[in-house]
Design a binder for these strands. Structure first.
Lengths: 240, 240
DNA sequence: CTTCTACGGTATGAAAAAATACCAATGAAG
DNA sequence: CTTCATTGGTATTTTTTCATACCGTAGAAG
């Protein structure tokens, strides 16, 4: 077997230290709106268990996010770590900085990865027969993103995309899609949300859902590919 | 956003301790034949850097694999950790034990995940124009697996599948496919490699390559889906 | 106003992991 | 045979992470 494949298997077992990874994870959960402004994070004890780290390490991460102004930590019963973060005005993030931070090669990698896992997820979801609750969930998420206020658009768009992966019932796949999304969050936040783009995206979202509900794997994968290619092209356009 | 999505983002940042993860990773590299019988692992110093761990931790992992009989460690210049592992006779592994070790739910998760990422990789590879070297690589891997001796079949099959992901140029995607494969290795090693199955697989491998080279994303994804569904069905059959 | 209790805050010791430096062996090259 | 570079082997110290126990606070419930 070639050395190239050795790299895929003998890659790092550890992305970084526990503290830094935890900060990054929590920050992304905040920026993605998984825990919206004003809401509370799970308690330190619960969160430490979910993240698989000690409470001490988690507290260090929370403290740094508090000092950075992302969290308001209150003690006592009914206290906790409350999110203080309003999504940036679309288009006002620093795109160049975000790209420089990750590198052009990493960007291509992230976009390719996202394309693969999201297409795969949609394709799979189209092959299984969904029960009524699952269909309702998918349609609700679609309706929410279509009715979203500009400030909530990214958050609900994220929720829609993640729902597709989660409905497959595969935690591994859901995690992969979440990871893929995280890698392009800063970039997406930095580009404007324009009316025509939203309308276009709405059409594509509808096409994705239709193909999934119709049990058309090829169509679902193609619809997701077209949709993601659109945002990828938008990103590349703003860079050139 | 729903709590279900919270789980995808606030999942563990650490899969386990560094030692155990390293043992697992090295063991899979050996079982997959990435480093074949008689070959040498990279030096401890190099390997520690690649795996992102300290040499101390790596040595503990190597030591346990040595004690388990997978490695022959020799010191001095031109020494190193040499692989001592001959692939098991197909069909003689303990399938029930392998399944019990991971659980039925985990198995379904792993199969779904693999389906998604490999379909996605093939789909993407079919959309890019490959240069002659890349086409040659793909065809060579196809020829190798078709000409494989039974003892080498799994190894070359793995190499073929991983090549598709690697040719996309996305390390993230390659890592995801490698990870997906790792999760079903023990299971695949436990089922027999029968003549009809090999012939069938060869046809499907050919179809995958043809679709990729023809620039047919839908066809490539469909071909991979059919192929993987075959092995998945085989696995389920042996379980029932 | 008192109580109860779920939360964050703090302290301490153990264990895991890392960083660094140095020792020992091997075998090809000269 | 001698040299010497490359490899595994060992020891030491520091940093990170974890486990555990306990303290302080706030706010709803009575």
């Amino acid at each position: 077997m070639k050395e190239t494949q050795l790299g895929s298997l003998l890659r790092p077992v550890r992305a970084g230290n526990a503290f830094e990874e935890t900060v990054e994870r929590l920050l992304q959960a905040i920026k993605l709106g998984v825990v919206p402004h004003g809401e509370r994070l799970p308690s330190e004890r619960d969160l430490a268990v979910h993240l698989g780290i000690s409470r001490v390490t988690l507290r260090e991460a929370i403290r740094s996010l508090q000092e950075a102004g992302y969290l308001d930590v209150r003690r006592g019963r009914y206290g906790g770590a409350f999110v203080v973060y309003l999504p940036p005005e679309p288009g006002h993030g620093d795109l160049a900085e975000a790209v420089n931070q990750m590198g052009a090669g990493d960007l291509a990698d992230a976009l390719t990865f996202r394309m693969a896992v999201e297409c795969g997820a949609a394709q799979i979801l189209a092959t299984v027969t969904l029960d009524s609750a699952q269909r309702a969930m998918l349609l609700r998420r679609l309706a929410e993103v279509n009715a979203a206020a500009p400030a909530d658009y990214r958050r609900l768009d994220t929720a829609f995309h993640l729902s597709i992966a989660e409905l497959t019932g595969s935690p591994l796949l859901a995690a992969a899609c979440a990871d893929a999304r995280l890698r392009v969050t800063d970039l997406l936040n930095a580009i404007p949300v324009l009316g025509p783009n939203i309308a276009h995206a709405a059409t594509q979202h509808q096409a994705i859902v239709s193909a999934i509900l119709a049990g058309d794997p090829d169509g679902a994968a193609r619809a997701v590919a077209e949709h993601l290619e659109g945002t990828a092209a938008l990103l590349r356009g703003f860079l050139a």
